[in-house]
């Protein structure tokens, strides 16, 4: 029983990582209606920028805010320079563009900062949280930030003009244009916000997994899985999806005899697919009705 509780707690702690990344995934999906395979690498690059700022003597929160601003601007810049020209190209060509961006960002980061792992500071400390050694104050802080982000996003999408316009632009671009929304800039804004949220995810994840150019590879797979499980249109679903994936994966690894440990990722993914087969829009996503 103790092992069970411990694995659930450890799963929640790891799940916070996935939840954070999943939020960024949902953000970009809201803006451009598909997944960005380079998102993890962009988050990694932002994290390196903040690390570099700290190396130059900028205090943590200063670096945090600066990185957020730089990432936001960087996201918009990437959209304007690289993906706006592809707006009329087929979807699959855009996906190829994401893969190209992935290769570029990963390679450039490796050249600038090397591939050796780097320690990354946490503002929350890493002592045991509320007497439990399984969740450190950093992980508790990470869960807190994730929930805060979730609330902010919810308010943004539900109650602000900008948020509503952005949703409209992504799901019904034609109609959105008719009511006077500048859909092109909504997409750029979505990129900026997604990159900024990604940078927060990166800066929170780095103290746990260590900073290096390949640090987001595994995280992004789980982030996608979590977002898809929760429903790509729902930030709340993405966060819950993240925690579910974290906990379930740990339990599968611990309790499924024989192959459980070696196959915990495939088992977790298989479960998600099963959920999708039953509920194709994810746990919290809106069902989509197609018109012929």
């Amino acid at each position: 029983m103790e092992l069970f509780t411990n694995q659930v707690l450890a799963g929640i702690a790891t799940g916070a990582i996935y939840a954070c990344m999943a939020l960024a995934v949902v953000m970009i999906y809201q803006a451009i209606d598909h997944l960005n395979f380079a998102q993890g690498e962009m988050a990694m690059f932002s994290t390196f920028i903040s690390w570099q700022l700290m190396q130059w003597g900028v205090p943590y929160w200063g670096a945090f805010i600066l990185t957020l601003a730089l990432s936001f601007a960087g996201g918009i810049l990437i959209e304007r320079l690289l993906f706006k020209p592809l707006a009329k190209a087929p979807v699959l060509t855009n996906v190829a563009g994401f893969i190209a961006l992935f290769a570029i960002v990963n390679s450039v980061a490796g050249l600038i900062w090397d591939f050796t792992i780097k320690q990354y500071p946490t503002p929350f400390g890493s002592s045991p949280f509320l007497g439990s050694q399984l969740i450190s104050t950093h992980q508790a802080g990470m869960i807190g930030v994730t929930i805060l982000l979730l609330i902010l996003l919810f308010i943004f999408f539900q109650y602000t003009r900008m948020g509503l316009a952005m949703r409209a632009a992504a799901s019904l671009p034609e109609s959105a244009r008719l009511v006077g929304i500048n859909t092109s800039w909504m997409i750029a804004l979505g990129w900026g916000m997604a990159t900024a949220i990604g940078s927060i995810a990166g800066m929170l994840i780095a103290p746990v997994v260590f900073l290096e150019p390949n640090m987001m590879g595994g995280v992004l797979i789980y982030g996608f899985a979590a977002a898809v499980l929760g429903g790509l249109t729902s930030p709340l679903g993405a966060v819950i999806g993240g925690f579910l994936v974290g906990v379930f994966e740990n339990l599968a690894g611990t309790y499924i005899p024989g192959v459980g440990n070696e196959l915990k990722l495939p088992i977790a993914l298989a479960l998600i697919i099963t959920v999708l087969v039953v509920k194709p829009a994810g746990l919290f996503g809106r069902p989509i009705v197609k018109r012929v």
């Binding site: 790891t14 997994v209 994966e249 611990t254």
Partner: peptide, 28 residues
């Protein structure tokens, strides 16, 4: 290698309470 963290494995090993832990891993 694709796992982001190995926390879960450490928690599991700790539950078995060994005296010695042999770490045959890559640097990260």
């Amino acid at each position: 290698v694709s796992e982001p963290t190995i926390d879960s494995h450490i928690v599991k090993i700790k539950a078995a309470n060994p005296d010695v832990l042999l770490i045959y891993t890559t640097p990260k």
